[in-house]
Amino acid sequence: ADPCKDDGGAPRSCVPGLVNAALGREVLASSTCGRPATRACDASDPRRAHPATLLTSAGVTTGPLCWRSDLLSRAPLNVTLTVALGKAFELVFVSLRFCSVPPASVALLKSQDHGRSWVPLGFFSSHCRQDYGRLPVPTTGPVGPGPEALCFPAPQAQPDGSGLLAFSVQDGSPPGLDLDSSPVLQDWVTATDIRMMLTRPSVPGDTGASAATLPYSYSAAELQVGGRCKCNGHASQCLPDPQGRLVCDCRHGTEGSDCGRCKPFYCDRPWQRATAQEAHACLACSCNGHARRCRFNMELYRLSGRRSGGVCLNCRHNTAGRHCHYCREGFYRDPGRALSDRRACRACDCHPVGAAGKTCNQTTGQCPCKDGVTGLTCNRCAPGFQQSRSPVAPCVKTP
């Protein structure tokens, strides 16, 4: 069964499954221990290396399990972890499991343009105002009209010394917003890249001052980015393209890495994201099989009551019109053939002498005849007329 069609074969909204979008992706860490090698960390020795790949490799390793930053001996104690997801995803949650006491301040950012620009998703700090210039999130949750980057409490250390930072995209969004109907929420959850900035280590008796017990290193084991491949409701899966890049397996007449536009011939109405109520499939232009290309005309779309705005281009088989639905000049409709028939339009074939022109009636095929001439193609003298020797007046009254 095709998830993008209902039982009757009609298009319906479909979305890829929830996955860990970071799994197997490369993580860029601004600091990783082992270069130069120390007794505890040697980047060139797999048994003592703590590379950033451990953050997204699903724990398939025989060596250490945790990434570890270099020893940081003086402020600023910032370390950045960046993971490119390869394409746009709609985020559900982001989490990072720390192997040591979690930092006291972390900023979570996202990019929607493959790392060219960044915006914050949330902050996690025991000193929101001091570290990020923001008030701590109210206990009642977000109150703004739309989603925003709020400052949440810093992740708590567990009894075993580890910790977990967990962020749900809903945490920054006021209740009641619906993904289908809220473009703002759609924008909020969309990301191509995720960045975590570990900005301040946790120290005993933390007061917010930067005087940590130095040197210090961050350590974490599992970065998860839970989300769905963004396909705007027009695909149920994402697959690697020939270049290995992840792209949506688009349906509903759409195309593009996110199914974000209509396929070339499917432009009878504007592209729209699918919703639970309406698939908003892109519709093929209606060209009666006589054209392979069409363009969208917004004016015509409005005039049609927002039903059809496609205009066929290069109508073939001697057809013409917005839908290639009538015959071009010099041709007429053969009533014995379907409009979609390649030979639906026949040449007028007006007689070169008997007809007054070359264009016939497009419905009946009747050519315009000179006086005294008759017949569909004007090739005979009418009753009471006989052929003359003049090509200008080929039929004259019989004396």
Partner: peptide, 23 residues
């Protein structure tokens, strides 16, 4: 009544060379 089609050979093209070229 079946009317014969116009016989092109019967026309006098002397003054209508242009027309004949079209034909």
């Amino acid at each position: 009544e079946v009317m014969p089609t116009l016989d092109m050979t019967l026309f006098d093209w002397t003054d209508y060379e242009d027309l004949k070229l079209e034909v």
